[in-house]
Simulated scan of single mutants.
Amino acid sequence: MDVKKQWSESEARRVEAHVKRTRERLRDLADRYIALEGHIPAGGRRGGGDVPAFHAPAGPRAPLRVEVVDVRDEVALYVRDFLPRVRLSMRLKGITRGAGDVRPGLLFMARMLPFVYARSAALGDEISRGAWDLERRAAWAAGEVPRPFALTDPCGGCGLHSLWVVPERMVIRCGNPACGRQESVSGVSVTVASQPGRLTLRV
């Protein structure tokens, strides 16, 4: 049995599954960014980017929900910071400064994420951490409670199809009481020890 080949194939499947989950988070975050606008009470003229400007009606103004504004601002900052890095990583020609519209930027990053991981797992992990954290916070700002959900992937510890994502804790846990394996939802970087046959997984 070629242990090294078997391990490499297992890691490739693990990274592929992680990238698929994170792409879903980026797409969800793109939708939530737009939806969160409706959770900000009218308080004057706003707009720009993805959201058309509008004027609030005359009369008393409701206060803004600061936590919603903060999350939207952080999503925009996330895109502004990472979109140019994704473009540079992929050696794409064109503008590499500025994010443009937030939602298209997030969707572009979702499309490019498999290729980013192929070139730089470290950058892929940075993008993943931000995507998972911001999507969770956007859900909270919208009044939703992120709930655990099952995965179809087998557990790397016991081999059973018993994995659950726990968004509140940002972890993937095995539901098998005899196993209890746990890892971060937001990164898959791997460190290989120098000794032959010894592998150390860092998540």
Results as ranks from 00 to 15, higher is better:
Ala62Met: 11
Thr22Ser: 06
Leu26Asn: 02
Pro41Gly: 09
His39Gly: 02
Lys20Gln: 12
Arg147Met: 14
Arg103Thr: 07
Arg202Gly: 10
Ser186Gly: 14
Pro196Val: 10
Leu29His: 03
Phe115Ala: 12
Pro63Gln: 09
Arg202Ser: 15
Ser162Gly: 09
Glu183Gly: 04
Arg173Asn: 07
Gly156Asn: 08
Glu24Ser: 11
Val3Arg: 10
Ser120Thr: 08
Arg181Pro: 04
Pro57Met: 13
Ala122Ser: 12
Asp101Ser: 12
Gly187Pro: 03
Asp73Glu: 13
Pro146Arg: 05
Val69Ser: 02
Leu113Met: 08
Arg46Gly: 05
Trp140Gln: 14
Arg97Met: 12
Glu9Asn: 09
Ser186Glu: 08
Ile127Pro: 01
Pro167Val: 11
Glu11Thr: 10
Ile172Lys: 00
Thr200Lys: 14
Phe108His: 10
Met1Ile: 11
Asp133Arg: 14
Val190Glu: 10
Ala62Thr: 13
His39Asn: 01
Leu106Ala: 03
Arg80Phe: 07
Gly175Phe: 00
Gly47Cys: 03
Asp101Arg: 15
Gly180Ile: 05
Arg137Ser: 12
Leu92Asn: 04
Thr191Ser: 14
Pro146Leu: 06
Pro114Trp: 06
Met112Ile: 00
Glu144Leu: 13
Gly156Cys: 05
Cys174Tyr: 03
Gly48Asn: 02
Val102Gly: 03
